[in-house]
Every structure is written in C-alpha cells, then in structure tokens.
Design a binder for these strands. Structure first.
Length: 491
RNA sequence: CGGGGUGUAGCGCAGUUGGUAGCGUACCUGGUUUGGGACCAGGUGGUCGCGUGUUCGAGUCACGCCACCCCGACCA
C-alpha cells in the first residue's frame, strides 16, 4: 500500500494535491510557485493542445510566436490593462552576472542594468498590437487570425499545482478585424470552440456567459467565459474569450483604411485556455482510487496486464497480449502492455487505476485456456470476462461509453448542484453548506456584487446566455432585475 | 503580505532529563511467489534546513536567518 490517497470527503484539497503528485502528473519545483509538469501530465497537455490546435486551424487560425519579454513602456499604454496586471509582473532589470567579490557564487553585475526594463509577459496583447500596427494598413490586410502557444508568468501569492502557478502554459489567440460585428462574432466563435472542447474532449459540461464589468479582463469591452463545476461545489473558469473593441488599437495606434477610403481603428479579440484545464479535468471526474481520464485525452487508452506463474505461461501470454495490442493499435487505440516482472498484477491494477487509464485488460492462464480476457473499465470499476475475438469491438465501444458516461455523470452532478434561488438567506446557506451554482437575480450594480462577494465569499461567475424568462427582483436589493446570474465560490 | 504549522535517509515519520541517530516504506542482492498494492533473509543509504551562541558534549537549549505547507487577501 505505497500510494494511499486522501479521500475526497476527508480533505478535498489534500486529495487533489496527493492525486496530482501520486498519479505522476506534476510536482513542485525548486522555484517557488512553479511546477515541473511530468511526462504523464505533459502527455495530457499535448492531447489537449492537439485537439484545440486542430480546432483553431479549422476555424482559420495560424500559429505564430512573440517574445517572452515585453518592454515596460508598452505596458503603460492601455490604462485598464496596466491596472489589471501591474501587481503581478516579473521584471527583468539586468542582463549579466559576475563572480561574487567574496568568491562565493555569482552576483548581478550592477554595470549591466537594462536601459529599459523588460516585463515577462503575463499576456501578450501589448507586444502583439505594437507589432500588428506594422502589418495592417487596409481592410484588405484583415482579418488577422493568429494564435500562440506559450508560457506566461503571473506573480501569484499562493499557488497550487495546475490551478494556479507562477508560470503556466497556455494558448492565446489574438485577432484583428475590420468591424465590431466581425470581432464579436470571432469572440463568440472561439467561446464555442472552447465549449465544444470542454464538453466533447474533456467531458466537462460548462455554462457559457458573459462576465460582469467587475470581473472582466483588464482592457476588454466584454469578457465571455465558460464555467465548470468541480466535485467540491466550487466553480472553475475553463476558458475566456474577450471582445477588446478598439482599446488596444487606440493604445497602439493601429488603424486601417476601410472600403470607403476612411481610416478607422482596428477591432480586436483575444482568447485563451491554460494548463489549468488539467486541474479541471482532475477535479471533475476523478475519485478516491485516483484519476479518471476521458478516453479522448488519456495518454494511454488501454493497459494490458499479464498474469502468470511460470516463465512458460509468461511468454505464451505475452504473445497473446502483443497480438491484442496490435489489433487495438490498428484501430487507433493507444495500448500499453505492462510485462514487467518486477511488479505483481495487483500492484499494476492499483497503479493504472491511480493513473486513470480508461480500460484495463488482464490475461491469465485461465483466459489463455478459454480464449478470454478480463476487461475492466476505470469509470465504474466494473469487470467482465469476454471472448478474445470480441476484444477490439468491445474496447472500441467501451471507450465511447466511458467518454459518454463520465460526461453524463458530471452533468448530473452539476444539475443536482445548481439552484435557482430567490432568497438571500437561502443563497448564503447553499453557498456556505452545500456549495454549487446558484442562479439568482441581480440588479446589475457593483455595490450588490461586492456585497455578495464580501458576505458569501462567492462571486458572480457570469451572466449565462440564453435566458428566456421575464425577469425578477434582485436577491440582495430587491430592485428589478432582467436576468439571473451564476454565483459560486470559485478557484 | 498577514495568521498557523513543519523542516531528521528518495518518501512518510519517531527521537525521553543534552551523551555522536532510529522505524516504516522505497531502493539493492538472493530465494520463494504472481487472478487486487506478496513473503523471507541479507544489504546500501543521513552536512539532523542554514548560521551563530551556551556546553566537556547539541537533532535536542537560546538567538537569528532560510525554505516549504496550510488558512486568508489577489488572480486563469
């Protein structure tokens, strides 16, 4: 019993930390607040990247790459933007080290101070718009539909593996358009891409909406988001897409000549998702036995564990396993045959459950004789003996079933923990004792928003799309309200 | 940055009134095992976070520093 997990009930946050480390996804590094993403965790990120990147390409985007460093002066050009990020920027002031005078180690060479300090990007709007200025003259140059996969740094006080680290990986799309309508359309299009990715690949149901002015991205006109509900009843923002209006074009003087020969500022969007999605994935599906990964993002779909007593059995079963592996791989399924003799089958079962491998096949002497295989599915832990000739068909179906089942399970959980609420005391009680999403009327004022935040520690996550009711009274002030907002404590 | 806590073998921990460090696990070797985290025997592994002090003698006492974790405020 080498790797006992803390149970979710006992301590959810400890469970999460244990799981990330014990499933070998990531660990804390020698640098405060920064993590080492280990191969298994990185493999999940690569799967996410591949799926998202394909979707970006299909919607007409290309990748490019901008520098990690941004001249300090760029940052002061968009007032709201500076305000939003100033407190968490890492600043490069020098470019050289030298041997310490006392002979012990190295010191920063005071002679090598930069004329202008460089900011390590917390996001790249400023350098990108400074550059787009040179790329855009006419409406014929538009739109620019670009994306970059990059690392960014935000100097956070308190960090948690994947959920909040000082450095993290993400993609940031930055597009330029000739009209407001087109930019808004792009913003919503990418929100839909994120939604589709979350639901179809991650099997995480999300709620689409728009952020309040108070919660929106610094420098945006509107911030759209998708919000997911974790098993502990807390919300997690799984993606954001911003309509930036002409704010950055004005700040960096990016103009174009329209069809009528008139100059105008360019319209902008930006949108991103981060390695935080791995945290969302973990907290949505996993259980007290370990990770539960959706087949579409699992680095390994199927693990084959041989069971044997003698060397002869071992080699006969290995041959059978290799045959099955090949058949499954021909169907595009990723298979690991764990033929190590250094660990017992029971150990391997526990290990791959911890790592969330969706399907496990076990082949032992009895199976060899009967031409059968034991199939176990990770999401329900059910086991079943099936004939070998049905393995491929069965596994293919099982992978689809698991993807489907964990999505439904997550959706049911969210539905069971989403409360339409019209009474403030009741809302407080829900947020305090049960957790989950509360849908309540809000009068639209920042005063009410701040009051809710202060008294419940929950925030307005978004104003959900597609509300068709006639309105009601604000849950706090009693003033008329057009729509319900999504309220929850959040990561 | 505030409150709390912890630093002793890779990991998790014990260490009494101060006497030169131990347990579990992991690791290595050999053997028996293998259908849910095997067992037996033997073995390797420590600058006790760092520094200064008290003392004949410090993991243990004093002072200072550092790091990490948890809880808050800020955030994807």
């Amino acid at each position: 019993m080498a790797k006992e997990l803390t149970s979710r009930e006992e301590n959810y946050s400890q469970w999460y930390n244990d799981l990330v480390v014990k499933a070998d996804l990531a660990e804390n590094s020698a640098v405060r607040g920064c993590m080492v993403i280990k191969p298994y965790g990185y493999a999940i990120w690569e799967k996410m990247q591949a799926a998202l990147d394909g979707m970006f390409k299909k919607t007409g985007h290309s990748n490019l790459y901008f520098p990690l460093f941004i001249p300090k002066s760029f940052f002061s050009k968009e007032a709201a933007h500076v305000e939003g990020f100033a407190k968490e920027c890492a600043v490069v002031t020098h470019y050289r080290l030298k041997n310490s005078p006392d002979g012990k180690g190295v010191v920063v060479d005071p002679e090598a101070r930069l004329e202008e300090e460089l900011i390590i990007r917390p996001t790249s709007e400023t350098i990108i718009w400074n550059t787009y200025k040179n790329w855009i003259q006419s409406y014929r140059d538009l739109p620019l539909l670009y994306n970059q996969w990059a690392n960014v740094v935000r100097w956070e006080m308190r960090t948690r593996l994947f959920l909040r680290t000082t450095e993290f990986l993400w993609q940031e799309g930055h597009t330029a358009h000739a009209s407001s309508e087109e930019a808004v359309e792009e913003t919503l299009k990418m929100l839909n891409v994120y939604t589709q990715f979350a639901e179809e690949y991650m099997a995480v149901p999300v709620i689409q909406g728009v952020k309040t002015d108070n919660e929106k991205f610094a420098g945006a006109i509107d911030t759209y988001c998708i919000e997911a509900l974790m098993q502990d009843g807390k919300a997690l923002q799984a993606g954001t897409s911003h309509f930036l209006g002409q704010n950055f074009a004005k700040a960096f003087d990016v103009t174009f000549t329209d069809k009528n020969g008139k100059p105008d500022f360019v319209w902008a969007t930006s949108w991103g998702v981060t390695t935080r999605l791995i945290g969302a994935l973990i907290m949505t599906h996993s259980d007290d036995n370990g990770l539960v990964l959706p087949p579409k993002l699992a680095p390994v779909h199927v693990v084959i564990v041989p069971i044997y007593k003698t060397d002869e059995q071992r080699s006969m079963i290995a041959e059978k396993a290799e045959q099955l592996k090949k058949l499954l791989e021909d169907e595009g399924i990723t298979v690991k045959f764990d033929n190590r003799d250094t660990h017992k089958p029971g150990w391997k079962f526990a290990e791959y459950e911890l790592k969330g491998v969706p399907v496990r096949l076990a082949i032992g002497p009895k199976d060899y004789e009967n031409n059968t295989v034991e199939v176990a599915r990770r999401d329900t832990l059910e086991k079943k003996i099936i004939p070998q000739e049905e393995v491929v068909k069965h596994v293919k179906k099982l992978l689809v079933d698991i993807q489907d089942n964990i999505y439904k399970k997550a959706l049911n959980f969210r539905n069971a923990n989403t409360f339409e609420c019209n009474d403030y005391a009741e809302m407080k009680d829900i947020l305090e004792n049960k957790g989950g999403f509360v849908l309540a009327y809000w009068d639209g004022t920042i005063e009410t928003e701040e009051k809710i935040k202060e008294e419940t520690k929950a925030t307005i996550r978004c104003i959900p799309f597609g509300q068709q009711h006639e309105g009601g009274k604000c849950i706090v002030s009693g003033k008329p309200s057009k729509y319900r907002v999504l309220i929850a404590r959040a990561y």
